[in-house]
Design a protein around this nucleic acid. Structure first.
Length: 614
RNA sequence: GGUUCCGUAGCUCAGCUGGAUAGAGCAACAGAUUUCUAAUCUGUGGGUCACAGGUUCGAAUCCUGUCGGGAUCACCA
């Protein structure tokens, strides 16, 4: 949209003409005029006062007068304190709207030739997805959409944490207690099925551990290792991990299983593959319900040995150094970070080594220019270290790495804790919001006449829309409180509220038929409501660009809400189909259509569907 | 303790590249439907923008410090 830019250019000319001062376009501050003042847009002229050495009023009036004679879009002006308020002509508004209509990809940038990989989700395969994963998935997916809108070629990926001691615990429990059960025989979703065995392992282990505490051995350990004055319960609480790694029979069995897996033992490998497959089938259902897909998958079982070559390279480049015991380190104290180990003395990789290797693998696979990692803020430091290492290794994409960091989700009752069973399960939550949408819809009966299948689709769109919007409207970096009751709200600042604005528009467009779609119009008057909507439309490209730069979907969510809100008001105060003239009717239909389209685009960028009816 | 993020209405959140009298939603109360779908709209009340300094014509926004909360600081992942 170039109209606002032309006014900015005129402003620069006005300043040059009136005062002989040259301004750069980024020195100009233009806002929408606050509703208590007369005007549409407002220039803040305080910054000019020093340069020109006249009073703000004098400067404002001079520029205003200049614009009045030289800039046809400006039809009136007034200066209040340091603010020059401009009123714009009818033709500005109608041409602006027409400009939006004529641009099929309005708000979207042309391809910029850059390829970015966005990583999100990245679950462990020993238990089902929960609320935290949902926030991660929604952020990653939306960010991917927003980057696409900004002209990037985007590859969605995840690193599937499919190996390690956790999955071995599930496997061991299944071996011992499963009696050959399968998700089918148990009638369960695969990820939940496997998760049950993970829980079972913990239960059995705790039982074993409690038994141990009263054996002679246990008492001897307590006496030998306790801290001064520490009672038995406290001691054993802290000792749990050590017990797992030393005396525990189950711990030993799980660790043996991990070793067998690493040695590619056929029986263990096939059990591992079978149980992971169950989990993936479960995950895929959840991903589908959330409407997300991946372009590529990386499995930790494939990548966990990667990175060793990077360590060798790093040593020869002088990025890493070897200690006497054979361990390899990087010293980043010069940039305010610590020393960090990248390879153990026994020659095995640590977590970050894997990440280095995976990054290199991804570059080898896709030749990407940049990467976005959607990872919770508890790993801020880890990602910071990773990026610094990749930079020092001279990786070609290292200058453009971004950690999409987000805060953890709390419940009104406090933190989610798996030990206390307060973790909100993703599938349960999805079912709940759809159920709520069903109840709300039943009260209204608007869609009752539609075929069953279509109804279900709409209920899903509304329920999931409520849930997604509730989570995505909050700035990523902020820790958020998730109140299950509020998450299913469908009134006020919610997904369904925005969807409802869209649905109203579709209803109008259906009723108006083809008679008025795309009809030319020449308006003789314009409502404040209409101006406000057009202002929103003009803002959209800037919002999208900003959301992309900031990796911040909440900016789009808030924009969509503001637009929907102003549409609802417009809808209420102004007749559209029964407008006072054919011109006004055509104009309002055209305006509604563009609002609907932009709402759709904005929600698409959030990964939220728009129902046609509700 | 070091580092880092957060602190805005009773609650959940916007606003943060400095601009006019800090905005929404929820909750409470009062209204609006012979009208394009009321998942809507209108109105009322509700604030030392954690606190204290500083920079500035101007600070919720930038800087410093304090307080409160989270995270992190493994040869774990």
């Amino acid at each position: 949209m170039e109209f606002l830019k032309s006014i900015k250019d005129s402003y620069i000319k006005a300043v040059a003409d009136c005062f002989g001062v040259h301004l750069e376009s980024d020195e100009i501050l233009i806002n929408e005029t606050r509703k208590e003042f007369e005007g549409d847009y407002t220039f803040v002229i305080f910054p000019l006062v020093k340069k020109i050495n006249k009073s703000p009023e004098e400067i404002g009036n001079a520029i205003g007068n200049w614009l009045l004679t030289h800039e046809s879009n400006v039809i009136a002006h007034n200066t209040v304190k340091g603010f020059l308020n401009l009123s714009l002509s009818l033709s500005f508004w109608s041409r602006s709207l027409a400009g939006v209509s004529q641009e099929p990809r309005y708000g979207y940038s042309a391809p910029n030739g850059k390829k970015v990989m966005v990583e999100f989700a990245s679950p462990n395969t020993n238990k089902p997805l929960h609320l935290g994963h949902i926030r991660n998935i929604l952020l990653g997916w939306s960010c991917s959409k927003i980057l696409k809108a900004n002209g990037y070629e985007v590859i969605n990926t995840q690193i599937v944490n499919d190996r390690g001691i956790a999955i071995c615990k599930s496997m061991l429990a299944w071996q011992r207690f499963g009696q050959g059960a399968t998700p089918e025989s148990a009638g369960m979703k695969g990820d939940h099925f496997v998760g049950e065995y993970y829980v079972r392992f913990e239960q059995e282990f705790v039982q074993e551990y409690q038994g141990f505490q009263f054996t002679d051995m246990g008492i001897a350990v307590y006496e030998a290792k306790k801290k001064e004055g520490q009672d038995m319960a406290t001691f054993f609480k802290e000792y749990k991990n050590t017990y797992f790694n030393t005396y525990s029979e189950m711990g030993a069995a799980a660790k043996a299983m991990l070793l067998a897996w690493e040695a590619k033992d056929p029986e263990i490998t096939s059990l591992w593959a079978k149980m992971n497959e169950w989990v993936y089938q479960g995950f895929n259902v959840t991903y589908e319900n959330l409407g997300v897909t991946f372009d590529s998958l990386y499995y930790e079982s494939d990548t966990y040995l990667l990175g060793k070559k990077a360590v060798d390279d790093g040593i020869s480049k002088g990025v890493f150094y070897r200690e006497d015991d054979g361990s390899v380190w990087i010293d980043m104290e010069d940039v305010g970070m610590d020393k960090k180990i990248v390879m153990r003395s026994d020659g095995t990789s640590v977590y970050i080594t894997q990440d280095i290797g995976t990054a290199q693998q991804r570059y080898a696979d896709y030749g990407i220019d940049s990467m976005v990692y959607t990872v919770a803020d508890e790993q801020d430091y880890h990602l910071k270290v990773l990026f610094e290492i990749l930079k020092r290794l001279g990786e070609p994409y290292a200058a453009d790495l971004h950690h999409l960091s987000y805060g953890m989700i709390d419940l009104p009752t406090g933190k989610m804790k798996s030990r206390e069973g307060t973790v909100v399960d993703a599938d349960d939550l999805i079912a709940e919001v759809i159920g709520e949408a069903r109840d709300m819809s039943a009260e209204r009966g608007e869609i009752a006449a539609l075929p069953k299948e279509e109804q279900e689709d709409i209920l899903r769109q509304i329920g999931i829309g409520a849930l997604k919007y509730f989570i995505i409207k909050v700035q990523p970096k902020k820790r958020m409180i998730f109140d299950p009751k509020e998450s299913v709200d469908m009134q006020g600042q919610t997904g369904p509220y925005v969807q409802n604005a869209y649905v109203r528009i579709q209803s109008i467009l259906r009723k108006s038929g083809t008679d008025h779609a795309g009809q030319p119009y020449s308006i003789s008057d314009i409502h404040d409501n209409e101006k406000t909507l057009i202002k929103h439309l003009l803002n959209f490209p800037g919002i999208v660009a900003d959301a992309g730069k900031q990796y911040d979907p909440s900016a789009i969510a808030n924009f969509a809400y503001a637009l929907a809100k102003d549409f609802h008001r417009f809808y209420h105060e102004v007749r559209i189909l029964n407008a006072e003239s054919e011109d006004a009717k055509s104009f309002r239909i055209a305006l509604s259509k563009e609002v609907g389209r932009i709402l759709w685009c904005a929600f698409d960028m959030l990964g939220i569907e728009m129902p046609a009816r509700m």
